[in-house]
């Protein structure tokens, strides 16, 4: 179970965070789920912490920093909308922005 992950997503590419709600140890903050940002940088491969948390051997997956504007996250309530937020998101939480 250590096959490599899918091809890296380019810096600057738009990505959406999955809007799913599984139980257990997960690493995607709730407030970012379903939100769209852009890849800020690729942080390389690391063992999937959502698997490591259960003491089992983990697949190597890619970790990214994703940048959002406050407007991306909080909508028109953001004050000010142009402030930004970066979060570390593992590839298993990302989907292309064209997916519905």
């Amino acid at each position: 179970m250590t096959e490599t992950s899918s091809p890296a997503i380019a810096t600057g590419a738009p990505v959406r965070l999955k809007s799913i709600a599984p139980p257990g140890h997960v690493r995607c903050p709730w407030y970012l789920r379903g939100k769209t940002g852009v890849i800020e940088r690729d942080l390389g491969l690391t063992g999937n912490p959502e698997t490591l948390a259960y003491g089992v051997e983990a697949q190597q997956i890619r970790l990214y920093r994703v940048r959002f504007t406050m407007k991306d996250i909080w909508g028109d309530d953001a004050d000010p909308a142009s402030d930004t937020l970066d979060a570390e998101i593992f590839e298993n939480w990302l989907e292309p922005t064209h997916a519905s």
């Binding site: 903050p29 942080l43 690391t46 402030d83 930004t84 937020l85 970066d86 979060a87 570390e88």
Partner: peptide, 14 residues
């Protein structure tokens, strides 16, 4: 107001 605030949510391995 003209300074951008950049928040870092340090939730993983960095």
């Amino acid at each position: 107001d003209d300074v951008r605030v950049q928040v870092h949510d340090s939730t993983a391995d960095m």
